[in-house]
Design a protein around this nucleic acid. Sequence first.
RNA 1: GUGGGCGUAGCUCAAUGGUAGAGCACCAGGUUGUGGCCCUGGCGGUUGCCGGUUCAAGUCCGGUCGCUCACC
Length: 378
Amino acid sequence: MIRFRILKQSKKTRARIGILETPHGEVETPTLVPVATQANVKTLSSDEIRHTRSQILIVNTFHLHLRPGEKIVKRAGGLHDFMHWQRPLMTDSGGYQVFSLGFGKDFGMGKMLRKKSDVSVKHGQQPKLLNIQEDGVLFTSYLDGKKIFLGPKESMKIQEALGADIIFAFDECTSPVADKAYTKASLLRTHRWAKESLKHRTSNQALFGIIQGGKFRDLRVESARIIRNMPFDGFGIGGEFGDEKGLMAKMLGWVLKELPEEKPRHLLGIGHVEDIKPIIRAGVDLFDCIVPTHYARHNIAFTSEGRIDLMKSRHLKEHKALDPECGCFVCENHTRSYLAHLARAREITGMKLLTFHNLCFFNAYVERLREEIRKGKL
RNA sequence: GUGGGCGUAGCUCAAUGGUAGAGCACCAGGUUGUGGCCCUGGCGGUUGCCGGUUCAAGUCCGGUCGCUCACC
């Protein structure tokens, strides 16, 4: 089980700092949760992850169910032993894959809509590659084409076998182009699944319920009210929040206002640098995001000077630290020139060094924000 | 030396005698509960050189230079 203590509530905003106690140690919040989909943070060893000052990781239920299978992980002694990370872990329920392998794939879009789209998902519509049913979703394995059924019951069983400290209820992450009727129907289904997830829980892992509702204020508020009245240990906020700038923080405000202060809130899959301050101000305690690690493998470094694309040849001539203001191993010991060379030569070491730096950069940034809350500046 | 093949974008190569294209590279963007991908633009050419045939030549003809293979 977990215990969440709020150390300080900001007077200026809804931001707070806290300590999340888990069976595998404490997490200072707010914090970034690096993504370890396949039971690893791509390119890093668990020791290296620790040195990026990351506190807790999120692993994916769907991907691990397909490979190697939760039985293997359980026999290895659970996720912590399997991946040699004796610190806090959470598992995503597979609900995001309902979107990413469904409508997300059909329309070739992510959950955040960047520009106006003329396609839409209407009530009753089904994605091409999977079938969303009342008690779960019929997936097709991308590994061998085998049919995989995943619902709240199945997801709970798998997540319990994996053994993370915090697990999530099975949900459907809706598409940013889903219309209101679709989003509403999906929401009601996700709420039923939330109830089912609680019903099928047999372990003492912490279980977080997920709030959906897309970009519709009334649905978001409705979802928050339904989910908060179920005996979850914390809350996940999923889906998208509209394409308008600043709307996300506003909508988070509406949702978080409905939730009990004493339970932790996790914002699922959000965390570009510019998003972090607004979401923390809105009262988010944990947020996972692929950006630092995913972008690192696309040669993008986040620095105090902004984004740097190491593929650009001009960086070959820069014999200075990646980020002079960062004290991480990479910035202390390597030049932009070297990192640009590794990127352009497509050396895996380059991806590793950028992954390490990006995580250090994000974690340092969030630490500074925690400090600001502590000092009453945020 | 003799015979054959080939010279087209930075690279690898397309293009019935009819507006010279592609992939890669390069430049500029994008990527939010992860397929080390992928997507969108842009730059880029006296078709080795000289001459000829033709309304029209990367393409046909002659010469020349370069590369390459085979054989003396």
